[in-house]
């Protein structure tokens, strides 16, 4: 994609492009600060890996939402519906694949998971397309109605899940090879968490690649900053937006599947549960910023795990406190995305 770049070096100085590094330090500082508090290294490793895994899953879910907001100023409160529908679709897909899931072969297990994730991604992608057309499109530019209507859409979707799959809690068994933990010395790390971290890193890397190295990615970044100018250059931002919305929905489906596997159980309320964390994460990250969303997800998830271990009673409000602290430091979130 690199345009013809004239090889020039010039003595002419430019005001130094200052990279904003402080937000990158939040998660590492948190990790280091937690070590003496937790006290034992193996426990700390377990908590940290759990936090990283949780953070990656939240990031996968939240990234699409924050981009959709950045691009079109649309805040989709119904994003949680894709989380839940994705998880249920994956569960349904895993039923006929039970043989593969229980097989004692990592490859068969992963193949079953891949199929389940594909079903979740495709299903929620299609649902996202319909949701954008029916629910979101008529209320562009009206925040109040957007919030109300997309929230209504979430309720309807949640209830529809009840009607289709029943309201009882479902089991979401982990494939054989992913159960249990890997042990290094006296440190035990659950296998599935490692998988979740790997998937999250892959999604993040893939997104960075698309956003920085492809024309579509450039258009998305440009559109987040100034959608009107993107149109004036001759690109149809509507199509771009629908594409991002569908991709974001599919990612939410993927994230929902991972989340359900992590919990090993599933109810229709899963969407609402996760959405609270997702909102906190994208507020912390700065609405519209993928990088901020990634950092925010790590910070929230790590803190949730450390605090859950150190002081379970206040674990529930720790997220709110972190959000408050970060907003005091940076009222717009970690990364401010320039707006028109």
């Amino acid at each position: 994609m690199a345009a013809t770049s004239p090889a020039t070096t010039s003595a002419d100085s430019l005001p130094e492009a200052r990279r904003d590094l402080a937000p990158l330090l939040v998660a590492p500082v948190l990790m280091v600060a937690a070590l003496p508090l937790v006290g034992s290294l193996p426990t700390w490793v377990t908590l940290t890996v759990a936090g990283l895994a949780m953070g990656m899953m939240i990031f996968v879910i939240a990234s699409g939402l924050t981009l959709v907001f950045g691009l079109m100023d649309v805040l989709n409160f119904g994003h949680g519906a894709f989380i839940a529908v994705g998880a249920y679709l994956a569960m349904t897909m895993l039923v006929p694949l039970a043989g593969w899931v229980q097989a004692d072969s990592l490859w068969l297990n992963l193949a079953a998971l891949a199929l389940a994730v594909a079903a979740a991604g495709i299903g929620t992608g299609v649902l996202g397309f319909a949701f954008e057309r029916v629910i979101v499109m008529p209320v562009y530019g009206e925040h109040l109605k957007q919030i109300l209507v997309t929230m209504g859409g979430l309720i309807v979707a949640e209830q529809a899940i009840h009607a289709v799959w029943g309201g009882d809690q479902k089991a979401m068994p982990l494939p054989q090879a992913l159960r249990g933990a890997v042990v290094f010395g006296d440190v035990a790390v659950e296998k599935f968490r490692l998988l979740a971290v790997a998937v999250g890193l892959l999604v993040f890397a893939g997104m960075q690649l698309v956003l920085n190295r492809t024309k579509i990615g450039l258009l998305i970044r440009a559109g987040v900053e100034n959608g009107e100018m993107v149109e004036a250059l001759g690109y149809r931002i509507r199509r771009l937006f629908v594409g991002v919305f569908v991709a974001g929905s599919a990612l939410a489906g993927l994230g929902g599947t991972l989340w359900a596997l992590y919990r090993e159980t599933l109810t229709a309320a899963i969407g609402g549960e996760v959405m609270v964390l997702v909102f906190i994460v994208i507020i912390i990250g700065g609405l519209g910023s993928v990088g901020g969303c990634f950092l925010g997800a790590l910070v929230v998830a790590l803190a949730a795990n450390y605090v859950g271990y150190l002081a379970p009673k206040i674990a529930l409000v720790s997220n709110i406190l972190i959000m408050a602290a970060i907003l005091m430091w940076r009222p717009q979130g970690l990364y401010l995305v320039a707006r028109r």
């Binding site: 900053e225 100034n226 004036a232």
Partner: peptide, 10 residues
């Protein structure tokens, strides 16, 4: 209407 997050080349 410059995209300040993008490089001049981009």
């Amino acid at each position: 209407g410059i995209f300040s997050d993008l490089t001049v080349a981009e």
